[in-house]
Design a protein around this nucleic acid. Structure first.
Lengths: 192, 192
DNA sequence: CTTGAGTGAGACAGGGATGTCTCACATGGG
DNA sequence: CCCATGTGAGACATCCCTGTCTCACTCAAG
C-alpha cells in the first residue's frame, strides 16, 4: 500500500529538511531524516552515500549560505557597526543550521575542517579588523575572539529562540546590541 | 599480568577525568572514559550504572560547581559589573564542562531538564536584573537573553582556547569586556 | 500499450557500543 | 595465615544504526 508520488526527489529540499531536523535533534537517525524529508531511507541513501556525506553536504550548504550572507551584507561599505547589523540580519535564517555545524565541528578533535570555514572566519575577522583600524572598535578584543563570540551568540540566540526564552523578532537586535554595545548603559563609564 | 592497584576508586576523580575527556570529545566511549580515569570499563560500570547515569552525575557535578561559583562571586555585593567579572573568573575552570553540558542539553528536545539549571539561570538573571534596577545596565536587553549570552560566550571561549585561537590567560577578560562593554570603543557614540 | 526510471517497503548482514557476567588476582583486616 | 572486598581482563549477548540489496509498484515518456 501507499506507493506514493514517484517524482524525482529534490536534493535541496532534502537538505533543508535535514537541516531543520538536525537543528532540533542533532543525533537524529538517517531514518528520521528521511521521514522528515518525506522520503524513504532507501531513497535518502540513493542521494547521499551515507551519514557522513549528508553532513558534509549540509556543511557545504551552510558555507554557501554564509558566504551569500557575507556578500549580501556588503561588509566593505559604510560604518562597521552597520555592516555587522546587516551581517547578522542576513545570517539569521541560517543560525540554526550554523549552530548545528558549529557544535558538530567540536565533536572531532584534530580533524581537518572544511576550508570554507577558514575563508568565512577570515572575512568576518577582516570586518572586525577594519572596525579597529577606523577607530570604531576597541583594539583590546582581538578580531579572532570577536568572530568566535559572534558564532557563540548566534548559536545561543538560536537555541534561546527555539526554547521560547527569547522572542524570534528580537533575534538580530539582541545579538547586535550585545556584540556592539555590551550590557552597560551607553552613558555609563566603566567603573574599572 | 598487570593486576594493578586495587585501592577503592575515587568516584570524584573518575568524574573529573570524564569531564576533561568529554569536554574534548563529547562522543567518547565508556571504554575511553574508563581508560582516561585509569580504571577498567567493568569498574566504571560498577560506579555508574550506565552512560546515562554518568552524564547525569556529570550534570550534578557541573551544577554543584556552578552554584559554588555563584556563591563565591558574592553577586549581591558591589557594582553589578564587578560581580559579573567575579562570576566569570570563578566559573572559568568549569567552562569546558559547562560547554559540554550546554550542548548536551540541546540534544534532547522537550525532555525535562534538571531543576538545578533553572535555579542557576534564575540567580544569574537576577544579577542582570539588579544591574538594570540600579541603572548600571540597559533595559532593552532582557536578563534571560543576557544569561543565555553568557553561556554562549563561555562555551565559545572554552572552545577557542582549546583550539588555540585565544590565549588562556585572556579568557575572563575577553568574555567580561565583550559582555559588559561591547565591541565599540567606550568613547564612540553609536552612528545609528 | 509498453517500457524504463525512480520510489517505498522490507530483509539482511555488519559494526560499534552497551550492559552483564565470570574468573583470576591483589590488598587490607581479622 | 586466611578471608572479604574490590579490581582488571575478557567473554558474551544485545541493541541500535548503518549500508546494501531485492522486489513490487507508480508514473511518465515513447
Amino acid at each position: 500500500m501507499g506507493y506514493g508520488c514517484v517524482m524525482a526527489v529534490d536534493p535541496d529540499h532534502v537538505l533543508r529538511s535535514a537541516a531543520t531536523l538536525l537543528t532540533r535533534k542533532s543525533t537524529a537517525t538517517m531514518d528520521e531524516v528521511a521521514r522528515a524529508a518525506g522520503i524513504s531511507r532507501a531513497t535518502l541513501h540513493r542521494h547521499f552515500a551515507g551519514r557522513d556525506a549528508l553532513v558534509r553536504a549540509l556543511e557545504a550548504l551552510g558555507i554557501a549560505e554564509c558566504e551569500a550572507a557575507l556578500d549580501a551584507a556588503r561588509l566593505d561599505e559604510g560604518p562597521v557597526g552597520d555592516a555587522v547589523r546587516r551581517l547578522v540580519a542576513e545570517i539569521e535564517p541560517q543560525a540554526g543550521l550554523l549552530a548545528f555545524l558549529y557544535t558538530e565541528n567540536q565533536l572531532f578533535e584534530g580533524e581537518e575542517q572544511n576550508a570554507g570555514w577558514a575563508r568565512i572566519d577570515e572575512r568576518i575577522a577582516d570586518l572586525f579588523r577594519r572596525g579597529q583600524e577606523t577607530g570604531e572598535f576597541r583594539i583590546d578584543l582581538t578580531p579572532a575572539w570577536l568572530t568566535e563570540a559572534l558564532y557563540g551568540l548566534l548559536a545561543s540566540a538560536a537555541w534561546a529562540v527555539a526554547e521560547g526564552r527569547v522572542a524570534p523578532r528580537e533575534f538580530t537586535y539582541m545579538i547586535v546590541e550585545l556584540l556592539l554595545g555590551g550590557a552597560r548603559r551607553p552613558t555609563d563609564t566603566p567603573t574599572a
